[in-house]
Design a binder for these strands. Structure first.
Lengths: 219, 219
DNA sequence: AATTGTGAATTCCTTCACAGCC
DNA sequence: GGCTGTGAAGGAATTCACAATT
């Protein structure tokens, strides 16, 4: 276990590895080598080993990794052994959908509230029953509910203002879906998922099909 | 203009640059240098110049870039001057939300249909009126509507099967939201947006806050 | 004087290849 | 014999820094 800084690419892959291991576990596989895991899930075996090596020695030479054991370690490393409490700012289509989306309400994460500024939305709930609060109550509810992750699904032109509010509450992790580059203090972790950019870069490849697409792009 | 292969990172940034230019244009800015664009939108000026240089010489030394002119070029390069017709496979929460999401129904893209296999969903429409069809009609409707981009929002365990169906229709660009690594022919461009991975890597940073977050992570 | 476009330098990431261990 | 863990090699992306240009 070294204490180098871990790249974002590595952490994303850890999360992928964990999911692979969970699949293997469900299929009753108890032991796996980096090679056969790579083959099965279209990964690179050296990279798996290198990524894991940042955090310790989890394998047995000549044998491989014990699936459940490694999964447990990754769960711990990713901080998924404790529950994260999540809120979503912006109760529009995307916000409400994410709120009810199975992939978001999964082990380790619980969505506890939606926020909006529209009086017509405030007081209501999502389909699954998550309440919509006035954005003015943000700080209060973040405190009360012990929120540690905030998802931003407000329109682009409101996003920076909302992010500033969020930072004031002391929350340290933000997942932004608004198509803007936001500014936060360096002690806050901001990730932006820009759906428009994803679509547009597909469009680029349609216009430039001469170049065969990369075989297996990261993420 | 060189004919090297353009990296995915570059194409994503082009899309960001275009948005920045559109903002500048709305604000009545006609000319901008890479430096001031970088400052304003938290980018790197050398990178802007280098990215653009793959496609031509769009600037004037000593002056900068003409906003509308460069925007036009980027629109063309990204293939956004022609409309793309998009369908979404999977009419669950996420699929329906994306269907009505403003950021998706934007210049250059039109969502023409949803698909599902659930008889209860087939025949209905999204809130904004996009029809939900039986997945069995996929090929037929792709042909009829001239669809060139497919979005996948089905559950993980159905995703590979749906992607195979999509590939059979001849569509060459797929945006996948299912949390699995999918396999396609190299002549098809597949991009995966893995929302769970994004959340989990935030969780990692919460558990390992010792390391100050990178100042401005890519995308 | 200012800013582009771009080789060179640097940093970061991936893959190779093998010593070390089971 | 087989597989891990890792130093070294190779490749890619970013940033620097400046000659070229208006």
């Amino acid at each position: 276990m070294k204490s180098e800084k871990i790249s974002e690419l590595t952490t994303k892959r850890l999360s992928v590895y964990l999911r692979c291991l969970q699949t293997l576990d469900r299929n009753g596989i108890h032991t796996i080598s980096s090679r056969s895991m790579a083959d099965q899930f279209h990964l690179n075996s050296a990279q798996i080993r290198k990524d894991l090596a940042y955090f310790g020695e989890f394998g047995v030479r000549g044998v491989g990794y014990q699936v459940s054991h490694l999964a447990q370690h990754l769960t711990k490393i990713l901080g998924l052994n404790q529950e994260h409490r999540v809120i979503i700012c912006g109760a529009g289509n995307l916000g409400r959908a994410l709120c009810d989306y199975a992939g978001f309400n999964t082990e380790g994460f619980r969505i506890v509230a939606l926020f909006d500024q529209d009086p017509k939305k405030i007081g209501g709930t999502s389909r699954s029953g998550v309440p919509v609060h006035d954005i003015k109550k943000l700080k209060q509810i973040v405190r009360r509910e012990g929120v540690d992750i905030v998802v931003i699904t407000v329109p682009a032109d409101a996003a920076q203002k909302v992010v500033d509010l969020v930072c004031e509450t002391g929350v340290k992790a933000i997942l932004n879906f608004a198509p803007v580059r936001l500014r936060v203090n360096t002690n806050v972790k901001l990730k932006t998922v820009d759906l428009k950019v994803s679509l547009e870069s597909l469009s680029y490849y349609l216009s430039n099909p001469s170049l065969p697409a990369a075989v297996n792009p990261p993420e």
